[in-house]
């Protein structure tokens, strides 16, 4: 669905009086298969938006090749535009227009007939829980409704591939969870391919089959959320020992479970990162049991995507968010 090789974008800029070229995207290679939901992550200024704008024909690449939905972005931008939907971060409707008409007009700009665009828009309003809002001004809609209206705008011509730029930024948690369901539904219901950028790691985790991390204009990681998390130093296993006198025994047992580093002791809590903890935990518990170490609790925390982010980019995503 998307094939990108060596995609590069430089912008002319000034440093003092000197003219310099700033490289925003530096030789990006990526591929997205049909039916995938791919999350595109990166701190601000990493080249995320620039890449997205090149893939959606809003800006021309300086060099490299990108084929989107079978069309080359530089040679056949109109072909690309015809085949993709794009839901931008900044919205897509006039606050004073009527919601339904905006969607129908947008469909007509794609060359869809008025009747077909109206039918499709009505269908999308029903699917995206916008029933009864056809005549509503976007100015009078909630943030979540407006976001769903933007998605309806992006889907009115029935594209096979849709780009979502920060789809849930600024929404409350309930509206976000609701929107995730709708995004997941695009693939399950329509077999669409979804390429989304996000700042939220939980969003990428919940929604995406695969995650691409971009930093300093280059792709630094590309894998499933689980595989990426496995690359990080393992799960955090924490034992809460009932009897403070047995903390040493617990530490020895945990050390035997091949942790990544020596277990840390904090009062009655003994913790260490263990790769593939699911396979090691039964033996660990058995050993503690045999040695008569009574536990108040065992906690296993999987690495989060934030840990991944920290590992591949050297900084936390939250610092820039």
């Amino acid at each position: 669905m998307i094939e990108v090789e060596g995609l590069t974008k430089t912008f002319p800029s000034r440093r003092g009086r000197e003219r310099v070229e700033v490289t925003a995207v530096d030789g990006v290679d990526l591929a997205v298969a049909e039916g995938e939901i791919v999350g595109f992550l990166g701190p601000n200024g990493a080249g995320k938006t620039t890449t997205l704008r090149m893939l959606t024909t809003l800006i021309r690449p300086t060099s490299g090749r990108a084929v989107v939905a079978g069309h080359d972005v530089a040679a056949d931008p109109v072909g690309v535009r015809r085949s993709i939907g794009y839901v931008s971060q900044s919205g897509s409707t006039s606050p004073e227009a009527r919601a339904g008409e905006e969607v129908v007009d947008h469909g007509q700009l794609y060359g869809v007939s008025r009747a077909a665009a109206t039918a499709r828009a009505r269908e999308l309003f029903a699917q995206l829980e916008l029933d009864g809002l056809w005549e509503r001004k976007p100015a009078a809609m909630s943030g979540g409704q407006r976001r769903r209206l933007d998605i309806a705008m992006g889907l009115v011509h029935d594209p096979r591939l849709v780009f979502l730029d920060e789809p849930t930024t600024g929404l409350d948690p309930q509206a976000r969870a609701n929107l995730w369901e709708h995004i997941a539904g695009l693939r399950s219901g329509r077999g669409m391919t979804v390429f989304l950028t996000t700042h939220y790691l939980d969003e990428a985790d919940a929604l995406c089959d695969r995650i691409l991390v971009i930093d300093h204009g280059r792709i630094v990681a590309s894998d499933t959320p689980d595989a990426l998390k496995r690359q990080v130093a393992g799960d955090l296993v924490e034992l809460v020992v009932a009897d403070p006198a047995r903390v040493d025994a617990a530490r020895a047992a945990l050390a035997a479970a091949e942790p990544e580093e020596a277990p840390l002791v904090d009062g009655t809590r003994v913790s260490a990162r263990v790769r593939g903890s699911a396979a090691r935990l039964p033996a660990l518990i058995r050993r503690l049991d045999e040695e008569g170490v009574v536990l108040d609790g065992v906690e296993v925390r999987r690495p989060t995507l934030d840990d991944v982010f920290l590992t591949v980019t050297g900084r936390s995503l939250r610092e820039d968010a």
Binding site: L58, S88, T93, L109
Partner: peptide, 16 residues
């Protein structure tokens, strides 16, 4: 005002 609301960009990704 339309540009700020995202309308111009939305129209620019159509084949129009």
């Amino acid at each position: 005002a339309e540009w700020r609301a995202g309308v111009i960009e939305a129209e620019r990704v159509t084949p129009a």
